[in-house]
């Protein structure tokens, strides 16, 4: 049951629905009554959100990959790939893209979701292979139209001593899921999987991750933060599986959300499934409001309430932004958060 198979076959019954355990908070079958038609690749004129950072650019326009559908590193440490998913019309946009990081190489993928049209339905499958000792940093910025639907599914396979560092930033959509499935079959893989969802109006964003530790000495560090206002809805599903024999795995998962209005909602399901013995795993999950006492404290110092709220919210999200290592990407992420939270004064 995937959006991709429904789009490819035109069969609505293939859409995931609330009866599928992993989709109960992101129902597509109840939402999509008619699948929009496919479209030609439209012309994309505007620059993407990461354009200033350079590198190769691949645009997937209305589901059509403009160029080769597989990217393979050719050595070196500074390669950048900008991967842009652009929907210019209310069309069905299924796509698949492959990324391979060769042994010892490193690659920065700057990926954006840019549905521009009301009613666009996008399904992006990204298959990622990181060979032994390779390193992939992936920053995903989803700035979809509030009335579009997007499902992004990245499947990542990490060989021994490979590194994946990922940060997903999203403002949501009518319904949006950004899913990352990581398998560490090799030993000593290192994963950082972060996310921030900043939602307003009636937007919905679902950050789902599944990390499977199959080899020994793997590390996963996850930090997701959300701020939801108005009638928005945030979903976090994080699952870490430590298979039998994956000893000395170190896995930490944190999800923390601020709910800023009575009608906003956050659903979270952090799961650690541990079948190995010698492991160190922890998770934390909090959902709450801003600390009113801290706001009074700031006001007592002369800071108006709205400024105090923005300051505390920005600091809350800042923890995720600060973990982005690449300076340029971190600056863009910080500006994005400031704009979204209304603090880019």
């Amino acid at each position: 049951m995937t959006l991709a198979s429904a789009l490819r076959t035109g069969d609505l019954t293939r859409l995931p629905s609330r009866r599928d355990e992993d989709w109960r908070w992101t129902d597509l079958r109840g939402l999509i009554r008619v699948l929009p038609p496919a479209a030609e690749a439209g012309a994309v004129h505007e620059a993407g959100p990461f354009s200033e950072l350079g590198g190769d650019e691949i645009i997937i326009a209305n589901g059509h990959v403009q160029g080769a559908a597989d990217f393979v590193t050719v050595g070196g440490q500074d390669a950048i790939l900008q991967l842009r998913h652009v929907a210019t019309q209310a069309s069905s946009n299924p796509s698949r893209f492959g990324i391979t990081v060769r042994s010892g190489d490193s690659l920065l993928v700057l990926e954006s979701y840019e549905a521009q049209a009301d009613g666009a339905v996008t399904s992006a499958d990204i298959d990622i292979i990181v060979e032994a000792g390779g390193s992939l940093r992936r920053i995903v910025l989803a700035a979809d139209h509030a009335s579009s639907i997007t499902v992004s599914t990245a499947t990542v396979s990490l060989a021994a001593n490979a590194v994946l560092e990922q940060t997903v930033l999203t403002t949501g959509a009518r319904r949006q899921r950004i899913e990352t499935r990581v398998a560490h079959p090799g030993a000593g893989a290192t994963v950082r999987l972060d996310g921030a969802y900043l939602l307003c109006d009636q937007c919905h964003a679902d950050l789902t991750t599944v990390v499977t530790h199959g080899g020994v000495d793997g590390t996963t560090s996850q930090m997701t933060k959300g701020v939801v206002r108005d009638q928005a809805r945030g979903v976090f599903q994080g699952r870490i599986v430590v298979e039998r024999g994956a000893d000395r795995t170190d896995a930490r998962m944190g999800h923390h959300a601020l709910i800023v209005s009575d009608r906003a909602e956050v659903d979270a399901k952090p799961e650690l499934l541990i079948f190995a013995d010698d492991v160190s795993c922890a998770h934390g999950n909090t959902i709450g409001a801003l600390d009113e006492e801290a706001i009074f404290y700031a006001r007592q110092r002369g800071i108006p309430a709205d400024v105090a709220r923005a300051m505390l919210t920005t600091a809350f999200v800042g923890e995720v932004i600060d973990r982005i290592e690449h300076d340029g990407a971190r600056d863009i992420a910080r500006a994005w958060a400031a704009q979204q939270l209304g603090t880019d004064l």
């Binding site: 404290y297 700031a298 110092r301 002369g302 400024v307 300051m311 809350f316 923890e319």
Partner: peptide, 21 residues
């Protein structure tokens, strides 16, 4: 009982307060 302000450096907080005043 002074409050904790996570993620906001003391200097940033005080400068924000000073300029707001």
């Amino acid at each position: 009982y002074p409050l904790e302000i996570p993620g906001v450096p003391a200097l940033t907080f005080i400068r924000t307060a000073m300029n707001a005043q």
